[in-house]
Design a protein around this nucleic acid. Structure first.
Lengths: 340, 340
DNA sequence: CTGAAAGCGCTTACAG
DNA sequence: CTGAAAGCGCTTACAG
């Protein structure tokens, strides 16, 4: 490996001081146009690149954002949840648009992950993305706040803490989906997905769902709510439990697409017809959702916009501008799984 | 934001020199057990983290790998190809398993992306992942080699250049899929996907496909090969051209799952029955493939293993160990799209 | 086993 | 507009 050119090499060739080289390369207005051009030409010729470690060390900032993707320890070797994967994609794009590098890291929920990156000066701030038990997660958030770490997170607003979140209007999404199914003539709903403060997003969807039922004078039957985490397998198992329970239902609300897809499989395997016997809705609009049979009606979370908002909010936070928590609308995507 | 603790702060409190603190924190055997424990205790108490910029600058290495995900400028705002997205997931995991950080970046093929990361000392080496015209790409590879950049890439072996690649046995995969369809009684194949040195992976699949036809005494009809890049849309359009050409075919080989899925839609929209009228196969086994209707028979590329191999190979390269190009086997995933 | 000192390659007051 | 100098926070010979 050839030894790399430094700003001194350029200074020597250009016949100026190293300070001037540094200024010229950073397009400082202090430097003479002609000098700047000469320096930049030589830099290009030598294939010179600023040493980021040195410049970050000196200027005490890194132009790097860290993305912490954490997951429930339970689903260890499986692939990443497709919803988060597409968030990852959009965050990566948004970062490069804004001129930031992105450091990506996976963490188990129980790891000691708080602020490793920011403390070590590798990143100016952190984006948190993940799933798992919210109550465990909340403790970590409190630690981050205590350390004055700059971070934003994807998820439902946490009113009790001063945190910038970007999330979807889960309540409204749940309401909208349920109302759509009611309009298609269904009356007896099952809900699959954890509906408690351990999973605030799912809980909000459930509450929206219940509100829609009440507004349409339909009964809420809590015995038809079955817990599940956001995997196909978990959705499949919960749907089996639902079937075994003998409960009557002509509609099923999966708290996420993955759950809905798993549940759809369970129903099909048990000779139910979708949507004739049971209408199904999911939540997220992951790429698979349009490929199920029948294609899944769902509430789309706009991951592209979400990634941009997350990155923009974090950059504002770093620059000490004012930032507020954002609630994005969801949009109803009607496909065939509800029979219309 | 509280000002961060430095090694001098720890030194002061521990009553030792800063050098000793540095040694103790790095578990140097040179340091007394008792001293080490004391230093580490104080570090923990102060919530101290080594400043990576400083340590990297001094030691001239970073424990960071860079992932360059580049894409054809043509499909700008669309989402990332799901196949590469799952590679991204597995690479991220493999990096964290190996104790490396991962810097992720998107690049357009025509950007001046070569070695940006390594030259700027932010990463010890680079993983290249992407699609686009191979001949453009090849020039970049040559530049990287000339600069002595350490990198590995996903893709077909490039025999003419000293590059470490990790890729699948595309030829054999193409052979296997085609043979499978022949065994199901099909005789007239169309192939959708660019089959030239601009797209070596697709080309290898095509060559494997042709070899299988020959081995089974079936004719290769080049007029039934239609170019397409790896998107649903491109597959859809190519399939439309195929249909309009009036050619007879009872089997269709999509050079990727995305192409096959787009082609399947085009066929369905034109009142073909799959698999009754036309058997379809794809390549990759992306998550969607099992959700199409009918589910898609395909050749699985093991992205989990690929990610691990890519990371391991790059680390070996960095440590100046010997590394060879790896060819991974594909596995035939039989679903319903070929009628069996 | 420990400490004093040099130096990684920059950025940025400070002085002119 | 330019240069000399300090210093970011570490690691690592060197000397003891």
């Amino acid at each position: 490996m050839k030894s790399k050119a430094t700003s001194f090499d350029i200074a020597y060739r250009a016949g100026v001081s190293q300070s001037t080289v540094s200024r010229a390369l950073r397009n400082s207005p202090l430097v003479n146009e002609e000098t700047r051009l000469k320096v930049q030409a030589i830099a290009k010729e030598l294939n010179y690149k600023v040493d980021k470690n040195a410049s970050n060390l000196r200027s005490q900032q890194s132009s790097t954002l860290a993305l912490l993707l954490f997951e429930d320890p339970t689903n260890d070797d499986s692939l990443i949840n497709p919803f988060f994967l597409s968030m990852l994609g959009s965050i990566t794009k948004a970062c490069s648009d804004k001129g930031y590098d992105l450091l990506v890291s996976f963490q188990q929920m129980n790891d000691d992950w708080h602020a490793e990156f920011e403390d070590s000066n590798k990143a100016d701030g952190i984006i948190l993305l993940g799933y798992g038990d919210f109550l465990d997660y909340e403790e970590k958030l409190i630690q981050l706040i205590e350390q004055d770490t700059r971070f934003v997170r994807w998820g439902a607003d946490v009113e009790s803490l001063p945190i910038v979140s970007v999330g979807c209007d889960n309540f409204h999404g749940g309401y909208q989906l349920t109302e759509h199914v009611i309009m298609n003539g269904r009356k007896e709903f099952a809900f699959i997905g954890e509906a408690s403060s351990h999973a605030p997003e799912f809980f909000d969807r459930y509450l929206g769902h219940c509100k829609a039922l009440k507004d349409h004078k339909l009964a809420v039957d809590e015995t038809k709510q079955f817990d599940a985490i956001s995997t196909e397998e978990s959705g499949y198992k919960a749907a089996e439990s639902l079937i075994k329970s003998g409960a009557k239902f002509d509609a099923l609300f999966g708290a996420s697409d993955l759950i809905a897809i798993g549940a759809m499989r369970a129903l099909l395997d048990n000779n139910y017809k979708v949507p004739e016997d049971v209408a199904i809705v999911g939540f997220d609009d992951i790429p698979m959702a349009s490929f199920t049979f029948p294609p899944l009606t769902t509430a789309k979370q706009n991951t592209k916009l979400a990634g941009e908002l997350l990155v923009e909010s974090l950059i504002k936070l770093i620059n000490e501008e004012e930032v507020k928590t954002t609630l994005m609308p969801t949009s109803l995507i009607v496909r065939k799984s509800c029979g219309s």
